[in-house]
Amino acid sequence: MTGPVLSEVSDGVGVITLDRPEAKNAIDKATAEAMVAVLDDFAERDDVAVLVLTGAGSTFCAGMDLKAFARGETPAIPGRGLAGLTEAPPAKPLIAAVEGWALAGGFELALSADLIVAARDARFGIPEVKRGLVAAGGGVLRLPKALPYHRAMELALTGDPMGAEEAHRFGLVTTLTEPGGALEGARALAARIAVNGPLAVQVTKRLVAGAVRWTDPEAVAHQRTLTDPVFRSADALEGARAFAEKRAPVWTGR
């Protein structure tokens, strides 16, 4: 398969690769649509028991393509969220294999996964507030369930990043690898899951996720009533334009 999202299957593991390295694998509308096609294909395939999501090049994903956003594009799929993933994770287990940066929506894609394997020098962050936006792809909902409240709040309000080793100490990252080894580590973890009964694995995932309300439709709906006005605001457009023009934003609070 060619395009902004690549896919391959081996030994029961389906690997999804964001393939826009020139844009740090940022998500635009075309990438989101391609992701949905791959996710739907893997959902139906009996030879795929576990999914792995990774990014081409040195970055996992830089999040929403702000240049595309400034042009009026959205990378969210109705009812499914960012890249067709954040509001409707697959029934099969999903492992994020993170090299380099997982920023903004990129971190939210990783948080949508059930397990995260990361290189020791990987970095995570939700810097949306720096662009006048809100991490509405699950970041502000899932992060406080994965980290202590005050550390999650600090990351969300400052937009500053967290290193993989700290994320591992908190349990957010399941497995640390040496740089360049995240995909191999994720494949090894996926293989340990893929040998188990597929129906049992899927129901177990559903029960564990449900126990902590990892994907909570009511919370997502409530979030949308608060965040939609922010995304339509003048500040949101200014933040995206400032990023594209490589300058500091000028906020108006409107």
Rank of each mutant, 00 (worst) to 15 (best):
T54R: 00
H168L: 00
G180Y: 01
A68Q: 10
L207A: 10
F42H: 02
L111I: 06
A190F: 06
P144S: 04
A240L: 09
P249H: 07
N25K: 12
A242Y: 03
D235P: 13
R241C: 03
S7W: 08
V9W: 14
L94K: 10
G138M: 03
I95K: 08
K92H: 03
Y149H: 11
M1L: 10
V140I: 08
A190P: 03
I126H: 11
A234Q: 15
L103W: 05
V13P: 02
G171R: 03
P78L: 10
A242H: 07
K92A: 02
V140G: 02
E165F: 13
A219M: 12
M162L: 14
A221L: 14
P21F: 10
A248H: 05
T177N: 14
P4W: 09
A37R: 15
H168F: 04
T86A: 07
P21L: 02
K205H: 00
G137D: 13
L237V: 08
D235V: 09
A97K: 03
G12S: 05
D11T: 04
G139Y: 15
V98Q: 00
V5D: 01
A156W: 13
E166T: 14
G72E: 06
A113E: 00
E165C: 05
A91L: 05
A113F: 02
L109T: 01
A200S: 12
E165D: 12
L143N: 14
P93V: 00
L109I: 10
R142K: 08
L141Q: 04
S112I: 01
C61W: 11
I126E: 08
D216P: 11
A68N: 13
V195M: 02
G63L: 06
T227E: 14
P21G: 14
V15M: 06
E44P: 00
G132H: 07
E218S: 12
A182N: 10
T2F: 08
V212A: 01
E238A: 05
D11N: 10
L82V: 01
D160C: 09
R20K: 15
F124K: 13
G84V: 04
I193E: 01
L226V: 04
E178M: 14
T175V: 03
A97Y: 03
A244N: 12
F231E: 04
I27H: 11
R123N: 08
H150R: 15
V140D: 04
G3F: 03
R169K: 13
L155D: 11
R232D: 15
G239W: 06
V250S: 13
K24Q: 14
A56W: 04
L51R: 08
R192T: 02
A30R: 13
F170D: 00
V117L: 02
P93N: 02
K246H: 15
P249K: 06
G81M: 10
H168N: 05
R20Y: 08
V5E: 00
A113M: 02
A182K: 12
P229E: 14
A23S: 11
G138P: 02
E22K: 12
L39C: 01
A188L: 11
D11Q: 06
A113K: 00
V36A: 02
T252I: 07
I193W: 06
H150M: 12
E154H: 14
A156S: 08
